[in-house]
Design a protein around this nucleic acid. Structure first.
Lengths: 353, 353
DNA sequence: ATGAAAGCGCTAACAT
DNA sequence: ATGTTAGCGCTTTCAT
């Protein structure tokens, strides 16, 4: 210990008072300058600004928020970050919020309802101005918290169900149906399904349900399926494709529907290497429209889930509900995902004529 | 307007007082129960808990933080989220913080220094308990804010430079050198470089510098280079590879070094399609060790940037500095990225013997 | 255009 | 084991 220890005052964060003393004005005036509110003479204003900058003052939002009971935070609760889909939703949200005073704060649930409940509780305890949360399925407690919060809630991604307040998304059930119809129309008959073992990914489940339903209407059913969990999705796509094709070698499949584009891309790469003729011998389709599909030599058939758009619209809904004082109603916005046929779902009707 | 309008009380968030009245104890006791602090009899405890749950009380952290001057937030400031590298860093951070009371709050800068400054200011105004920030390069104002904040700061990803406080990362300069040496040893001579137009991506720049430096020492230099910005990285990798190879057809390149794995993977796919023999005719290497490389039929040579580890260590450093009261010193932890030779950097020395 | 007083909803510190 | 008092650093409201 140096003999001078103790002479250096412990660094205490600066307060409004420090600035007000240095600038020789009341705290109130400093506050007004820093928030650009009320009348302050040009001279005082400049003096305060100068002093604040020199001192390196950073306002304490905690105190500000408590005093004004205004917290310019939007809680965003999503299942996963590494998923490629949510970063895009986040971009949409940020694009809109960047023009405002609001800023998004993200919580991740890893697809676990109890984790979602905990994260939600944490976020609500900061008294945000609004909540954007993925999905329509939540624990009873979560729903109660959301409903009781008294702030705008927007549930995103999915519109197959009843929102607590507002919702923006696509119908995954319809998306599944749509792609199934396309596959049927193209003349494929022996269809395999490859997806992830995620009982709690309700959106994947709904797509699957819509898919099988549409097949059933055409008198078809899924010939075989394969599920994975964890690991490199591209690699898993490869492995699962190999497995399901081999297993059905005696009576070959002619189409594979993947629950996401990453495993679909793995399957496509596998087929290309093995010389399997896509789409004539075997058709493929995924879901999500992830950007990197552009880099493959054949474009995988997929459906764009409107992720950026969902983010934007969700943020806009929140803004509407906050800004305006009119009793803005809750609404559900259902977007229409675009089907991209690509190069892997093109076979002409065979044996139908 | 309904004739009953005004009869529904505007939903005011519940306060401790509401709970204390309903449970017939002092606010202080409720506070103690909810935070598991101090002695509270089992009976009172249960009663309070029950009432709080029934009422749906969610504590106001804003007020709590102000009163206790403790904000259990760690600010995490990163350049990008869609990058694949930062989600992994985030996972490392969360893995460690999940066992504590602290929670990460993320801010994204898009590689813009002025944006970083703004984000930092915003975050600091919430008085977080610590800051984890990517890179060692910041504006003067940002550095000043960080230094003046009086909280633990950990700069991550990079250790080629002087940290404000602590740092965890790898030496990108050394990483560039290392891969260059490997390429030289393998006997490649005409080396192309493909990267992104990001003057502000200091880590990519440092890798490039280390790379060219090591080449220079061996009497070599970069034969040609190609840069991209925006778009699908996989696709860009393809296009740039085609462009650079064609441009040098008269005197062919025998190695391509990519500044990231995504464009590298695009290049690899291109080569495979064109029947270019990798690694004998043309060697390839990327940087980052992204998971999906596992799904390609040849493993791209790369270096793992220790992203998860960096996140973990950064969070641990912050915890050390907060938890302990000892004057824990700032330290710099330099991790050692592992080189993965893969299948694209293997040519035996030729013409050297 | 500026200031003074009160209090936002909690918790620290000190009773009891 | 429980209660009381005094703030935390701002903003609101009302004076001047």
């Amino acid at each position: 210990m140096s003999e001078f220890s103790g002479t250096i005052p412990p660094r205490r964060p600066l307060t409004l008072r420090d600035v007000s003393e240095a600038a020789n004005v009341s705290e109130m005036t400093v506050s007004r300058v820093l928030r650009n509110r009320g009348d302050v003479s040009e001279g005082t204003r400049n003096r305060v600004l100068k002093v604040a900058r020199e001192l390196g003052y950073v306002p304490n939002k905690i105190a500000g928020a408590l005093a004004s009971s205004r917290v310019n935070l939007i809680a965003v609760i999503i299942p996963s970050m590494s998923n490629m889909v949510f970063p895009e939703v986040m971009t949409g949200i940020s694009d809109v919020l960047d023009h405002t005073e609001l800023q998004p704060v993200v919580g991740v649930t890893n697809y676990k309802p109890e984790r979602e409940e905990a994260v939600l509780y944490q976020m609500l305890s900061w008294r945000p101005s609004g909540v954007i949360i993925a999905g329509l399925e939540h624990t009873e407690a979560s729903k109660a918290m959301l409903a009781a919060s008294g702030i705008p809630i927007v549930e995103i991604m999915d519109t197959d169900g009843d929102p607590i307040d507002s919702a923006v998304g696509i119908s995954h059930r319809k998306a599944g149906k749509r792609i199934a119809q396309e596959i049927i129309t193209a003349g494929y008959k022996r269809i395999g399904f490859l997806g992830s073992k995620m009982p709690l990914d309700h959106r994947a489940r709904k797509r699957f349900e819509g898919f099988t339903e549409a097949l059933a209407k055409a008198g078809l059913e899924i010939a075989d399926s394969e599920f994975y969990s964890g690991g490199s999705a591209l690699q898993k796509g490869r492995e699962m494709t190999e497995a399901i094709l081999n297993r059905n070698a005696h009576n070959p499949l002619d189409f594979l529907y993947y629950s996401n584009d990453m495993i679909g891309a793995g399957g496509l790469l596998y087929c290309q290497e093995k010389g399997i003729k896509v789409p004539h011998e075997l058709g493929l389709a995924g879901f999500n429209g992830i950007e990197f599909l552009d880099g493959l030599s054949q474009r995988l058939a997929t459906m764009d889930a409107c992720r950026n758009e969902i983010g934007r619209k969700a943020a806009e809904l929140i803004l509407e509900r906050i800004d305006e004082n009119k009793p803005s109603e809750s609404k559900t916005i259902t977007l229409d995902p675009t089907l991209q046929i690509g190069d892997t779902l093109k076979r002409k009707k065979l044996g139908q004529t």
